[in-house]
C-alpha cells in the first residue's frame, strides 16, 4: 500500500477545510482559530493545516493537506508542499479580484507547479458568474500553464472527488506516458 499526499490551497474562504472534510474518511484535523481581521469577513480561519485521509479502490491512501489561505502564512505553503504529488487550488469567485487571487497561488507555488500536476476549482461561480472560466483560462494561457479548471461546490463530495480524480489522471498520464 502506498500513501500519496495532495495539497489543497487557495484563498481564505474558498473552502479548503470544507473540501477536505467532504471527502475525508475520518474526522479531519483542523487548526482553525478565531479570525480577528474584520476585512476578511469570516469568524474562523486556518492558521496551521487541515488534514484528511482518503482510500483509493486500489488500497492506496491519499493524505489530504490544506494550507492556510492567507498569504502571510506562505512559510507553511512551502513546508506543506514538500512530498506532495499534486496541488489543488481553490478560488472563491465572489471575492473582489479572484483572477488576482489565482495568480497569488500560481506564483506562490510556481516552483512546485513546474513539476507537480495541478487542478483548479472555482467556487461560487453560480452566484458570481464573472469572471468566467474562460477568463481564468486566459490567465493560465498567458502564463503558458495548461491546468484543468472547473466550477466546483466543495460542499459536494463528488465535486471534490472530481478534482482529485483530475489530479490522479494527470499523474497517470505522466507516469505511463499516454
Amino acid at each position: 500500500m502506498n500513501e500519496y499526499k495532495i495539497l489543497f490551497t487557495g484563498t481564505m474562504g474558498a473552502g479548503k477545510t470544507t473540501a477536505i472534510g467532504s471527502v475525508s474518511e475520518a474526522a479531519p484535523i483542523v487548526t482553525d482559530v478565531a479570525n480577528t481581521d474584520l476585512s476578511l469577513g469570516k469568524e474562523r480561519t486556518t492558521v496551521g493545516l487541515d488534514f484528511g485521509l482518503l482510500t483509493l479502490a486500489s488500497g492506496d491512501r491519499i493524505r489530504l493537506f490544506g494550507t492556510p489561505g492567507q498569504q502571510r502564512f506562505d512559510f507553511l505553503w512551502k513546508i506543506l508542499a514538500k512530498s506532495a504529488i499534486g496541488l489543488i487550488i481553490l478560488v472563491d469567485n465572489s471575492r473582489s479580484d479572484p483572477l488576482a487571487d489565482l495568480v497569488v497561488y500560481l506564483d506562490g507555488f510556481a516552483e512546485d507547479l513546474s513539476v507537480l500536476p495541478c487542478a483548479i476549482g472555482i467556487g461560487r461561480l453560480d452566484t458570481h458568474p464573472v469572471p468566467t472560466l474562460e477568463d481564468y483560462i486566459d490567465i493560465l494561457a498567458n502564463r503558458n500553464q495548461l491546468v484543468p479548471i472547473m466550477s466546483v461546490d466543495v460542499r459536494r463530495r463528488e465535486d471534490v472527488v472530481l478534482l482529485i480524480d483530475t489530479l490522479l489522471a494527470q499523474l497517470e498520464a505522466n507516469t505511463f506516458g499516454a
Partner: peptide
Amino acid sequence: MKIKKGKLAAFFGFKSQNQEEST
C-alpha cells in the same frame, strides 16, 4: 465511496489501465 485511479483516463484521453496491466 472509493476513487478508482483509472476512472478518469477517458476523460483526458489517456490510456486506460486495467487490472492485468496494473501488475
